[in-house]
Nucleic acid binder design. Structure first.
Lengths: 127, 127
DNA sequence: TTCGAATATATCGACTCCGGATATATCTAT
DNA sequence: ATAGATATATCCGGAGTCGATATATTCGAA
């Protein structure tokens, strides 16, 4: 049908960047991404958690569970969050992804011209 | 294993851009992409032809066969090329992909800072 | 003139990934 | 109460990836 979104590597870059900035838990990553992209980039649960899991098992990020209890009362389990931080290996991966991203940017710029806010209509092709 | 490439939408943008620039046949698209990206972006047959086919059946590009004969001699079939040009619909799609690309660029810039040639080490996070 | 490399298009298929739907449980505000 | 947000996680049908493979023509070098 041609028209999804699907950019796993892009997501990897963006998630690693966010986590490099400061440790966060999954849901916060998802929300923050929504905010910073002004709603243009969405990271749904079905993509987010498998990605985090994979990043962790690849040693690129490291997760720690934290219990968040609302009231002081003793026993029952409270809500849990899993905080992730980027490892050194993860930073390296992030740099790689960033380099790839910049290379692609350069290619796009070479093809359609650098981003000039207004559309100054490029020439029509004839043949 | 984490580390492929796979970016169909990116390829779509890049192929549509090339064809918007001037009509080309598949092999030429592939070669030109290699050149302009300095070898960083490769579009192999297994990706190229299915993509072109899909773009055509979606009405984004339009292909025409052209026979290329080496010598003047009459009969035998010569080598054939299929030239593609972008349709109006294809241009629209290209603009959409471009907009998405620019949105993602903006997000990355917001996350890691705009592209400053040299790496001016960003601050470490603590927690 | 012959033989390998480049040109040119195309399909196959095993593998991977995507992402909407779904499930579960806690917390907050009305 | 209870609806909606928070928070994590899996499932699985459908889609995409890309190396390998197939076929045929043309060019250049030995």
């Amino acid at each position: 049908m041609l028209g999804r979104s699907g950019q796993r590597d892009d997501m990897e870059l963006v998630v690693l960047s966010l986590l490099a900035e400061s440790p966060r838990y999954g849901y916060a990553v998802s929300k923050e991404l929504g905010v910073r992209s002004e709603g243009r980039v969405r990271l749904t649960p079905g993509v987010l958690y498998p990605l985090l899991k994979e990043l962790e098992s690849a040693g690129l990020i490291q997760g720690t569970w934290e219990e968040v209890r609302a009231d002081e009362e003793g026993d029952g389990e409270g809500r849990k969050r899993k905080w992730y931080r980027v490892t050194a290996k993860g930073r390296k991966r992030m740099e790689q992804r960033l380099a790839a991203h910049r290379a692609f940017r350069a290619l796009v710029d070479a093809l359609v011209g650098p981003d000039t806010g207004a559309d100054a209509g490029r020439g029509e092709a004839s043949r």
